[in-house]
C-alpha cells in the first residue's frame, strides 16, 4: 500500500529524515516510536503533502507516486492524518466542516454526496461510539476544545471518513486513560483487511490497546530498529539511548 524508499527531508537547511525506509501492506498496523524531535511529525506531514520541505527519495501509495498528488488528492485517495496539534478554525462550525470534508471526498470518489439528514445520522452514530459530546460539534472547529477533545475530534473525523491509510501522530499524548481506551476502540473498530495504520507514539501504553504488527524506532533520521510488539516493551525498559 505505502512504500517509502530512502526518504531524505530538510527543513530550513536542517536535515531531519536521512534515508528513511518503510513498507506498509493492507491490513497492517505499524507503530513508530522515537525521541522528541526525531522527525516523526515531519514524516507524517510529508505523507500528507505539507509544503515547505526539501525532499528526495521515493514514496508510492497504491503504486502511484505520492509526490504527483496534491494534498487534497491524497486525502481523496484515502490518506488521513490525525494531527499532533489539530488546528483551530474560528467561525467555522464543526458539523459544517465535517460535512464539507465528507462530501468533498465522496465527490472525488464519484459517490453521491450526503444530504444533511444522512450526514447527521452518520455523525451521531460515530460520535456515540467515541462518546464524543455531540453538542461540541455545533461549536467552532476546535475552538475552546480541550487537548483531549481535539484529539478525539480527529479520531471522529477519521472514523467518519473511513480512510485507507490512517496516520495517527501522537494522538495518545494528552489523553486520560478512559479517553485512550475509547480512541483505541475507535481505531480497532475501523480495522479492516484493506486498510492500514501508522501509529506514532511516545508511550507503550497505547499499544496495550492497539496491537501493532510492527514496532519501529526512529532515531537520527532513520529507523534504527524494527520488531514486533515486544520492542515497545523493551524500549520502555531501556530508553532510546541504550537500545542498541
Amino acid at each position: 500500500m505505502l512504500k517509502i524508499k530512502n526518504l531524505k527531508a530538510n527543513i530550513n537547511k536542517k536535515l531531519i529524515l536521512d534515508g528513511f525506509n518503510l513498507e506498509i501492506k493492507p491490513g497492517e498496523i505499524h507503530a513508530i516510536m522515537g525521541p522528541n524531535g526525531s522527525g516523526k511529525s515531519t514524516l507524517s506531514n510529508i505523507l500528507s503533502g505539507k509544503k515547505g520541505y526539501e525532499i528526495s527519495g521515493q514514496i508510492t501509495f497504491e503504486n502511484q507516486n505520492l509526490f504527483d498528488l496534491e494534498v487534497e488528492e491524497r486525502a481523496h485517495k484515502g490518506i488521513f492524518l490525525a494531527f499532533q496539534y489539530p488546528l483551530e478554525i474560528p467561525g467555522v462550525n464543526t458539523n459544517i466542516f465535517l460535512k464539507t470534508s465528507v462530501n468533498a471526498i465522496r465527490k472525488a470518489k464519484g459517490e453521491t454526496e450526503l444530504d444533511a439528514i444522512e450526514f447527521l445520522k452518520l455523525v451521531k452514530k460515530k460520535a456515540n461510539e467515541l462518546k464524543f459530546d455531540q453538542e461540541k460539534l455545533s461549536r467552532q472547529l476546535n475552538v475552546g476544545f480541550s487537548g483531549g477533545e481535539k484529539k478525539k475530534n480527529e479520531i471522529l473525523q477519521m472514523s467518519i471518513l473511513d480512510p485507507k491509510l490512517c496516520i495517527l501522530d501522537e494522538t495518545d499524548s494528552g489523553l486520560d486513560i478512559d479517553a485512550l481506551k475509547i480512541v483505541a476502540n475507535g481505531v480497532n473498530a475501523l480495522r479492516k483487511k484493506n486498510n492500514a495504520f501508522l501509529i506514532i507514539t511516545h508511550y507503550q501504553r497505547l499499544l496495550n490497546y492497539i496491537k501493532p504488527d510492527f514496532v519501529h524506532v526512529l532515531m537520527n533520521g532513520k529507523l534504527i530498529k524494527s520488531g514486533g510488539p515486544g520492542l515497545a516493551l523493551e524500549l520502555e525498559k531501556k530508553g532510546y539511548e541504550n537500545l542498541n
Binding site: E72, A75, L81, F83, P86, I105
Partner: peptide, 11 residues
C-alpha cells in the same frame, strides 16, 4: 489552517 482543510479533502 489551509493544510488542515486540504488534508480533509477540500481544495
Amino acid at each position: 489552517q489551509l493544510h488542515y482543510c486540504q488534508q480533509r479533502g477540500l481544495n
